[in-house]
Amino acid sequence: MSPSDLSARLEDNVKILESARDFRGPFVLEINGIKTIVSRAQFLEFYIDVAIEELWGLKETVEVS
């Protein structure tokens, strides 16, 4: 993975977390085509979990390179 690709993926994660942090609701998650109203805490937890998974994937990619 090139440094610019890594930078772009990290920037995407930052933008996702910033938008989740700044979003004021209503908090709706769509998973497998099913929309569910959730609490702000559940909404933030979901996006934090997504970012964690992505960061672990980036770490593995960097280690292999």
Rank of each mutant, 00 (worst) to 15 (best):
D5T: 13
V14K: 07
V50P: 02
L29G: 03
G57R: 05
A20P: 01
I16R: 06
E18C: 06
I48W: 06
A41T: 12
L10K: 12
G57D: 09
D5W: 08
L58F: 04
A51R: 04
E30R: 15
G25S: 14
S65L: 07
K35E: 15
I48D: 08
S7Q: 12
W56K: 05
T36N: 12
I16N: 06
I37M: 14
K15T: 04
P3T: 13
L17F: 04
I37H: 10
R24N: 07
S4I: 15
S4G: 14
L10C: 12
G25Y: 11
F23Q: 06
L17Q: 06
S65H: 03
D22N: 06
E53S: 10
L29M: 06
I16M: 13
E53T: 08
M1A: 04
E53W: 05
L55A: 12
G33R: 01
P26D: 08
E11S: 09
A51E: 13
K15Q: 08
P3H: 13
N32E: 11
E45F: 05
P3K: 12
I52G: 00
K15S: 07
E11Q: 12
S39V: 04
I16H: 02
E45A: 14
K35V: 05
I34N: 00
R40Q: 02
S39C: 13
E18N: 11
A20H: 01
A41Q: 15
V50F: 11
R9F: 11
V38R: 03
D5Y: 03
V62E: 06
W56D: 08
K15G: 01
T36D: 08
L44M: 10
G25C: 11
F23N: 07
D22C: 04
A41L: 07
E63V: 00
V28A: 11
N13P: 10
K35Q: 15
S19P: 01
A51W: 00
